[in-house]
Amino acid sequence: MPAELLTFAQLVLNGLALGAAYALVALGFVLVLNATGAVNFAQGDMVMLGGYAAVALARALPVPGLLLLPLVMAAMAGFGLLFSALAWRPFRHRPPIFGLLATVALGLALQEAMNALEGAGPQAGPALLGVGEIRLGPLGLSRASLGILLACLGLGLAQGWLLGRTQFGRRLRASAQDPVTARALGIPVDRLIAVSFMLAAALAGAVGLLLSGPYFVTPTSGTDLILRAYIAVAIGGWGSLRGAVVGALLIALFESVVAGYASSVAATAALYGAVLLLLMVRPSGLFPAPLGRRA
């Protein structure tokens, strides 16, 4: 392979791991969006909380990150239930902007609470598959990135299976499309919504653990993630799972490749420039979802 192509391939490979993590955050966001129509701007802060949960667990239990993953996800699922009771239930009959701002306010409170408890300094979480690098022919991939990639792939496929192939998934989609009819058919809509929040929070917890090892966690580390998830979900079509994943991967590849050839400042500028161009060409995103009209 010529050197130029090799550099490019390496940049793509580097971007893939972060892209997978962004995708998982975006998936959690879409899950709640589809179930309730609510925009959860605290999804990023839940990732942060999951990161701190991982740090705390790793302090108490010195076992590999892989074993902590289910623990963190279970704890965060519980938090998701609490969160839905606070941020969704009281606001479900109000204009959507109230729910959106409520999640912003709770996210802010979470950030500040972690700042008061743990300080603003970065903290390192557990490594999923140890440290070091793995060679894939001429390309290198860190074990941390590999761990993120594999875990995200597994969780993403599990979610796809859950939504696409199970009774639960069918009911969830039915109640998202038409909650009134679903309720009339005896589908427990409220319980399904609570479960969506739990799943979204568990996904956030997983990402929190995965990122806390190689990239550390700070009280504000959710902010960057939610912005990227928001972009990913919007350019993906506002409600499309496939679109959210594609959007997230595009963002990460864009960041990695443009930063690899120009600079990270240029990457940010170019990313938003590209998003604007994309929206001009496709005003309802890459894979317009029926929910798009609800936006």
Partner: peptide
């Protein structure tokens, strides 16, 4: 000489250059 934002996580591209 190049600046990066505090939210940049993957520094491999800039370190490489």
């Amino acid at each position: 000489s190049e600046g990066i934002d505090t939210d940049v996580k993957d520094l491999a591209p800039i370190l490489g250059r």
